[in-house]
């Protein structure tokens, strides 16, 4: 697919008017991340969000709860909005709820969580638990985790959306699993978001799912942009391609993230991190220029040679 730098940079203006300064947080000096529109409503989202698998599962550990809240504070201060979690992620939901309360419930926060149970009847209970753990009344986005009992849960979530308990409905997969089923759901169901794995090595979604998302007006959240960190470990120490400096990528994580978010169908990539410097760096990747399609090909070719 060909797309121009112009396509990729669209949304920059929106970023500056998004008014993302969360309540209770100090004003920031860092450039704001680019934004993309959620096709079903036109609402804009910063193109980099925050995952929570493993990183925020800290149990009752007071020191690590505070450390996680500091990462979340830095995320909002850098202009981030969407935080993704799941009942599957241990205490991550509770950690996020703790941080949101500590930060005075930043207005810009965009809550994304999931229903993760094979039981139809457990779905609504799980939703209530999730909402309580986030300490919120309304969840922005609820997704069906890994397509588990998706028919029943989608129906339930659509009802909750109609009752304005949630604002958006979505479905997730990862590791390239069940893309055929996902495609069918994207074709047949009225969903706002789809979440899938996409990164410089896992590019299969480019063939069908990403174009289909654009065609059907479905926002795309990208999980595992760093393959749970293994891509960073694999390439660190290796030379960056020359175009890295042109797009302001100072290191591999930034280049890998810029690759992901430069695909025009991607609405938001959600790298997870335990570190303040990393969360800032990730948001910074979304504030600068992104590779166009020629540069993307250069990145792919360069990586193939490493």
């Amino acid at each position: 697919m060909q797309f121009s730098r112009r396509t990729i940079l669209q949304g920059t203006a929106a970023a500056t008017v998004a008014g993302l300064t969360p309540g209770g947080l100090s004003a920031k000096t860092q450039a704001l991340p680019l934004t993309r529109q959620i096709p079903s409503t036109g609402e804009v989202l910063p193109i980099v969000g925050l995952g929570s698998w493993i990183t925020f599962n800290v149990g009752n550990d007071p020191k690590l709860l505070d450390a996680s809240a500091d990462v979340i504070a830095a995320f909002f201060e850098s202009g981030g909005r969407l935080i993704d979690s799941s009942p599957m992620y241990g205490s991550s939901q509770a950690t996020i709820g703790f941080a949101l309360e500590k930060l005075g419930f930043p207005e810009s926060a965009f809550s994304a969580d999931k229903i993760w149970t094979s039981s139809k009847s457990e779905g609504p209970t799980q939703f209530t638990e999730t909402r309580n753990l986030w300490r919120l009344k309304i969840m922005d986005l609820m997704q069906v985790h890994n397509l588990l009992s998706w028919r029943a849960h989608l129906e339930m979530l659509q009802e909750k959306k109609a009752r304005k308990e949630i604002r958006y409905v979505g479905i997730t997969t990862s590791h390239g699993r069940r893309h055929g089923d996902l495609e069918e759901i994207m074709m047949s169901q009225d969903i706002d978001f789809v979440q899938l794995t996409y990164n410089v090595l896992d590019r299969e979604p480019e063939n069908r799912l990403l174009p289909l998302a654009r065609e059907r007006g479905i926002a795309v959240i990208v999980n595992r942009p760093f393959q749970r960190g293994s891509l960073i470990a694999r390439f660190s120490g290796k030379p960056l391609p020359k175009i890295a400096s042109e797009i302001g990528a100072r290191n591999w994580p930034q280049l890998l993230l810029k690759f992901v978010i430069s695909h025009p169908a991607v609405t938001c990539a959600i790298p997870a991190t335990t570190r303040i410097d990393h969360v800032k760096e990730n948001l910074e990747s979304a504030a600068g220029p992104l590779p166009d399609s020629t540069m993307r090909k250069t990145i792919i070719d360069h990586i193939a040679q490493l």
Binding site: W53, I54, T55, N57, V58, G59, D61, K63, L64, M88, Y89, G90, H175, T274
Partner: peptide
């Protein structure tokens, strides 16, 4: 894929 926590969190437990 089945491990929910980091080495640091497990040790601090």
């Amino acid at each position: 894929d089945f491990l929910l926590f980091s080495p640091q969190v497990y040790e601090r437990l």
